[in-house]
Amino acid sequence: MSTVHTTLPVAVHLFLVQEQSILLLRRYNTGYEDGNYSVIAGHLDGGEEVKQAMIREAYEEANIEISPANLQVVGIMHRRAEDERIDFFLAAQRWRGELRNNEPHKCDELAWYPLTSLPENVIPYVRQALENYRAGRWFDSFGW
């Protein structure tokens, strides 16, 4: 009997936190969860470390620079939707640069929301990850 090992897409998500509020973006024109809120996020490129991927995505999407020392891994999620995935959630409270929507073709709003009063239309696994963050839970499975 042979064992088949799976290869999973890996993503990073940024909880940019300021005074008990979090930066959310509303997805637009992507074909995935358009009209719903998420956080700055993206996939790891080959040969890329988790924090470096998050630093790259933060700059690409929101024009900010975050040093590795200012990023903390606060959660991991094993998630199942149409496929199986691993998501890393990182938090930062310090960054450099002025926040700007660098991808208006994929995002039609960047806005701060209180962590305790999120919009109804936050993508469900992101909402769960935010609840985990607030509760101090570092690992969860979603969609199983």
Score class of each variant (00 low, 15 high):
V4W: 04
A11C: 10
V12M: 04
V17Y: 01
Q18P: 03
E19Y: 06
L23D: 06
L24D: 00
R26Q: 02
R26W: 03
R27K: 12
Y28R: 10
N29C: 07
T30A: 07
D34W: 10
G35I: 08
G35F: 13
A41N: 14
A41L: 11
G42T: 00
D45S: 14
E49G: 04
Q52L: 11
M54W: 04
M54S: 07
I55N: 00
I55P: 01
R56L: 09
R56D: 08
A62G: 05
A62W: 03
N63W: 04
E65W: 08
P68N: 07
Q72M: 08
V73E: 08
G75Y: 05
R79H: 07
R79G: 13
R80Y: 09
E84V: 11
R85I: 00
I86A: 11
Q93A: 07
R94W: 04
G97L: 01
E98T: 15
R100W: 02
E103M: 14
H105R: 11
H105N: 13
L110N: 00
Y113K: 07
S117M: 12
S117Q: 15
E120D: 15
N121E: 13
N121V: 10
I123E: 05
I123R: 05
P124F: 01
Q128G: 06
A129L: 06
A129R: 01
R134T: 07
A135M: 04
G136S: 09
F139M: 15
